[in-house]
């Protein structure tokens, strides 16, 4: 290739490289740029104002461009003689120097504009993703209570139908076993309080009734249908059921005997004797109950009720 030809090729290559820049050279100049506020941080709304001098008429874009670093919420174009004010409001979610994507303003495309965003956090901290909406105060507590209101009864039912059944039964049985004992003690207290006013007949009717209830509960058969003689014959079984000596409850036999005389023969029983009977009953029952409870606590002592050979039931 001759030198002339080589020069022509080089010129042609140069022309090809330069021509587009000449053809598409910026037909605008940014004469002034202002940022409000001067320093801004991630998440702050920032207004960017650019005074643009352009040969062609500018107009606001029909569609706000989208940026990866945050939101461009508005783009306005204000004509000021032969210049234009282009105002952008952006909300950056990233720190650093951020570049605004090209903005089509009709005859001109603003491009290459950038701004600096500071961060209050660590310089290189990763930006967290966008959080969901905040709940009303107390929402969590209400939700927790709803969950508990549903779950607790459900769990209770499942427990009671399954492994808890035996436990509940045991607890109820224990409670029920204590009821006649407490009732007897209350009856004794009441009788002691009213001993001046009660007749011997009423006194012994109530006392024997409470004792019958207790014996029914302890021995497991109907002692309310038992006579005094029968009740006396059950006393060794009552004592044995509590783990006491067979004769421990024998003094109650005397109470039953006196009760029969008072109830059915109209015998008058002195207050002193009645008080003595109350004391005997209370002391005996407290002792037997404590022995019974102690016995229940011993491992492997949950045996059934004692057999009463002559119970007649």
């Amino acid at each position: 290739m001759s030198g002339a030809a080589r020069r022509f090729v080089l010129w042609l290559l140069f022309a090809c490289a330069v021509a587009p820049s000449v053809v598409f050279a910026q037909s605008y100049n940014i004469v002034e740029s202002v940022r409000l506020p001067a320093e801004s941080f991630v998440g702050d709304p920032i207004e960017l104002r650019y005074r643009v001098r352009s040969a062609v008429e500018l107009e606001a874009p029909t569609r706000v461009p989208e940026a990866a670093w945050g939101d461009i919420t508005s783009v306005r174009v204000i004509e000021r003689g032969d210049e234009y004010d282009v105002r952008l409001i952006v909300v950056p979610f990233e720190p650093g120097t951020l570049t605004i994507p090209p903005i089509d303003l009709g005859g001109v495309s603003l491009d290459g504009l950038s701004f600096l965003v500071s961060s209050v956090g660590e310089e290189r901290a990763e930006v967290r993703g966008i959080l969901g909406p905040e709940r009303l105060p107390g929402t969590r507590l209400v939700m927790l209570m709803i969950v508990l209101a549903v779950a607790v009864p459900l769990l209770a039912i499942l427990y009671l139908a399954g492994p808890g059944r035996a436990v509940v039964r045991r607890v109820l049985a224990r409670h029920r076993a204590r009821v006649p004992y407490r009732k007897l003690l209350r009856a004794i207290d009441q009788l002691e309080k009213n001993i001046r006013y009660d007749t011997a007949r009423d006194f012994y009717t109530h006392l024997v009734g409470a004792l019958q209830d207790l014996m029914t509960s302890r021995l497991g058969f109907e002692c309310r249908a038992a006579t005094s003689t029968e009740l006396t014959s059950y006393l060794p079984a009552l004592a044995a059921q509590c783990g006491a000596d067979a004769q421990a409850a024998a003094p109650l036999g005397g109470v039953f005997e006196t009760a029969d005389s008072a109830k059915f023969a109209g015998a008058q029983v002195r207050r002193k004797v009645r008080l003595e009977h109350l004391r005997t009953c209370r002391a005996l029952m407290v002792e037997l109950e404590s022995l019974r409870r102690r016995r229940r606590r011993l491992p492997g002592s949950r045996t059934g009720r004692p057999e009463v050979a002559d119970a007649g039931v």
């Binding site: 009717t205 058969f221 109907e222 309310r224 249908a225 038992a226 006579t227 109830k263 007649g312 039931v313």
Partner: peptide, 11 residues
């Protein structure tokens, strides 16, 4: 009779 006697409450 046994059942009866073991059921009816004695006064």
């Amino acid at each position: 009779v046994g059942l009866l006697l073991s059921t009816v409450a004695v006064p």
